[in-house]
């Protein structure tokens, strides 16, 4: 797997979210990602970024163009927040500790081809998404 392009952006306030969306749109355009995959990736990224703003306050997001059998876009989101106590529960639809719809993480997972989550209490959370241009 080869990384063709990579850029890291911070997330600490709402307007960073729009910058991240902008960069994903740019990369998606470069590899000719179909509209539906682009919208799914943008939505999944929004869900993840929103979690950072809500629970960890700040973090960073690395967006990369990958080249393997297919081209794809990878989004890695890292924060130094308090971490998720129960990752398995957090991945279930309808589970929320904040009164939201509880669709964020499980929803994001069903929107992308690859979804990994690692979280350690009081260390932080790392989420990795990939959408391939199949």
């Amino acid at each position: 797997m080869e990384v063709l392009k990579s850029k890291t952006l911070k997330i600490s306030e709402e307007k960073d979210l729009l910058n991240i969306r902008g960069l994903i749109r740019e990369y998606a355009g470069e590899i000719g990602l179909p509209e539906i995959y682009k919208v799914k990736l943008l939505t999944a990224t929004s869900e993840i970024a929103r979690n950072v703003l809500k629970y960890a306050v700040s973090g960073r997001m690395t967006i990369r163009i990958l080249s393997d059998i297919y081209k794809g876009i990878e989004v890695i989101c890292e924060d130094n927040g308090k971490g998720i106590a129960d990752v398995d529960s957090a991945m279930k639809k309808g589970f929320s500790t904040s009164g939201s719809l509880g669709l964020g993480l499980p929803g994001a997972k069903s929107l992308v081809h690859v979804f990994h989550i690692d979280s350690k209490l009081s260390v932080g959370t790392r989420v990795r998404l990939i959408v391939w241009r199949k």
């Binding site: 539906i36 939505t43 639809k93 499980p106 929107l111």
Partner: peptide
């Protein structure tokens, strides 16, 4: 609502 948005919402379970 755009088709891609509609599909995304359905996949999201919203």
């Amino acid at each position: 609502m755009q088709p891609a948005v509609a599909i995304t919402l359905v996949e999201l379970g919203l």
